[in-house]
Deep mutational scan, measured.
Amino acid sequence: NQASVVANQLIPISTHLTLVMMRSEVVTPVGIPAEDIPRLVSMQVNRAVPLGTTLMPDMVKGYA
């Protein structure tokens, strides 16, 4: 099972991601792979992401 990136807190819209905001967890459905966490740092979310939500490629500007 592959770990995905999950929000560690509420991430407001247009926030630049930091390591503190993300954790890796095995979830269904599978989202952005956990090994991409370093790549996600300083990218922006294009919507509010609630605590515990799996980050999907379409939620992060410039990821997909």
Rank of each mutant, 00 (worst) to 15 (best):
P29V: 05
A64P: 10
A3T: 10
V6F: 02
L51A: 15
Q2N: 14
V26H: 10
A3H: 12
A7L: 03
T53A: 10
T53V: 11
L17A: 00
T18H: 05
T54C: 05
Q2P: 12
R39W: 09
S42F: 09
P57Y: 07
L17E: 00
R39M: 09
L10F: 13
S42G: 15
A48M: 14
P57D: 05
G52D: 10
I32P: 00
N8P: 01
R47E: 08
V27D: 01
S4L: 02
V6M: 04
R39E: 08
Q44N: 04
H16V: 12
T18G: 04
R39A: 07
S24I: 08
V20G: 14
Q9D: 08
P33K: 10
A7Y: 01
I13S: 13
V49F: 03
E25T: 06
L55Y: 01
M22E: 01
T18W: 03
T15P: 00
V26T: 13
A3D: 05
G52W: 04
N1D: 10
T15Q: 08
N8L: 05
I13T: 13
L10P: 09
V20D: 15
P38S: 13
R23F: 04
S14I: 04
M22H: 01
A34M: 07
P50W: 04
H16M: 13
G62P: 05
I37K: 05
L40Q: 00
P57H: 09
V5E: 00
Q44W: 05
Y63W: 14
A34L: 03
I13E: 15
R23C: 06
A34N: 06
M21I: 03
M56E: 07
R47I: 11
D58V: 09
P12Q: 08
E25V: 10
L19Y: 14
S24W: 10
D58P: 06
D36S: 09
P33F: 09
P38A: 10
N46P: 02
P33H: 11
A64C: 09
A34G: 12
Y63Q: 03
E35Y: 13
I13Y: 12
V49M: 04
H16L: 10
E25W: 08
P12A: 10
L51Y: 12
T18Y: 03
P50G: 11
I37D: 01
T18F: 03
P12I: 04
P12Y: 05
P12N: 08
V27W: 03
T53E: 10
T28Y: 11
V49C: 06
T54G: 01
E25G: 12
M56F: 10
L51G: 14
N1V: 13
G52R: 04
M22T: 01
V60A: 02
T28F: 15
V49W: 04
T54S: 04
P50T: 10
Q9F: 11
T15S: 13
E25Q: 12
V60P: 01
V45W: 03
L51P: 11
L10V: 12
H16G: 09
V60G: 01
L40N: 00
V45H: 01
V6N: 02
N1A: 14
P29T: 05
V49E: 03
V41P: 00
A34C: 07
P38E: 11
P50Y: 07
N46D: 11
A3G: 13
Y63M: 05
Q2S: 09
E35I: 14
V30L: 10
M56P: 01
P33G: 06
D58W: 14
I32F: 02
V30P: 15
H16D: 09
P57M: 06
I32G: 01
A7T: 09
L17P: 00
A34V: 09
T28G: 06
V49A: 04
Q44K: 08
A64D: 15
H16C: 09
Q44S: 11
S4K: 00
V60Y: 01
A64Q: 10
V45D: 01
P29H: 05
S24D: 07
V6G: 00
T53S: 09
P33C: 06
L55K: 01
Q2R: 14
N46Y: 07
L10T: 11
N1W: 11
T18E: 10
P57I: 05
R47L: 09
M22G: 00
I13G: 09
S24R: 09
P38K: 09
L19T: 11
P33N: 11
I37E: 00
N8E: 07
Q9C: 09
I11Q: 00
P29M: 05
P12L: 05
V26N: 12
V26I: 14
V6T: 06
D58H: 12
L19R: 14
R23L: 05
T18S: 11
M56Y: 11
E35W: 10
E35Q: 15
P29R: 05
A48P: 12
S4R: 02
D36E: 15
L19F: 10
N8K: 09
Q9W: 06
A7S: 10
G52L: 04
D36V: 08
T54I: 09
P33Y: 06
I11A: 01
V49P: 02
N46Q: 11
M59V: 06
T15N: 04
L40P: 00
A34F: 07
P50C: 07
L17D: 00
D36L: 13
P29L: 05
M56V: 07
L51F: 11
V60N: 02
S42A: 13
K61Q: 14
H16Q: 14
L40S: 00
L40W: 03
S24H: 08
S42K: 11
V60W: 03
G52S: 07
P57E: 07
L17W: 00
L51C: 08
G62S: 08
L10H: 12
A48E: 15
Q9V: 11
P12C: 05
V41Q: 06
V30I: 13
E25N: 08
V41T: 05
I32E: 02
T53R: 13
M21W: 03
M21P: 01
L55I: 14
N8G: 07
E35L: 10
N1M: 14
L10R: 12
M22C: 04
M22S: 01
P50D: 10
I37V: 06
L19Q: 10
P33M: 06
P29F: 04
A64R: 05
V60E: 02
V5H: 02
M43N: 04
D36N: 14
R39C: 08
Q44M: 12
P57R: 08
I32S: 00
V45Y: 00
E25A: 15
V30W: 12
N46V: 12
P29Q: 05
I37M: 14
V27N: 03
S4N: 02
A48Y: 13
T28A: 14
A34D: 07
E25D: 08
V5W: 03
A48S: 15
Q44G: 04
Y63I: 04
V45P: 02
G52E: 04
T15A: 10
D36C: 08
V6H: 02
M21H: 09
L10S: 15
A7R: 01
T53N: 08
N46E: 08
V41K: 04
E35M: 12
M22N: 00
S14N: 12
R47Y: 10
G31R: 00
D58G: 11
P38Q: 11
M43C: 07
P50I: 05
Y63L: 06
S4E: 02
L17V: 02
L51H: 12
R47W: 06
E25I: 07
Q2V: 11
Y63F: 09
Q9G: 04
Q44R: 10
P38V: 07
P50S: 10
I37F: 02
D58T: 09
K61M: 15
L51D: 13
V45R: 00
Q9Y: 10
A34T: 08
G31L: 01
T54F: 03
R39K: 13
D58F: 13
T15D: 04
L55W: 02
V5T: 06
M21K: 01
I11V: 05
V41L: 12
I32K: 00
Y63V: 04
R47D: 07
D36M: 15
N46G: 07
S4I: 01
S42D: 13
L10Q: 14
I13R: 11
I37A: 14
N1S: 12
P38F: 10
G31Y: 02
R39Y: 11
S14R: 11
V41G: 00
V26G: 05
M21D: 04
V20K: 12
G31M: 02
Q2K: 12
Q2H: 12
V5D: 02
I37W: 03
T18N: 05
P29G: 03
A64L: 15
T28H: 15
V49I: 12
I32R: 00
S4C: 04
P29W: 04
Q44L: 07
P29I: 06
E25L: 09
S14W: 15
P50L: 13
Q44C: 06
I37N: 01
N8R: 08
Q2L: 10
N46C: 07
T18C: 05
N8Y: 03
I11H: 01
A48T: 14
P33S: 10
S42W: 08
E35K: 10
R23M: 05
M59D: 12
S4Q: 01
A7F: 02
M56C: 05
N8H: 06
T15G: 06
V60S: 00
N8T: 13
S42H: 12
L10Y: 15
S42R: 13
M43E: 04
Y63E: 04
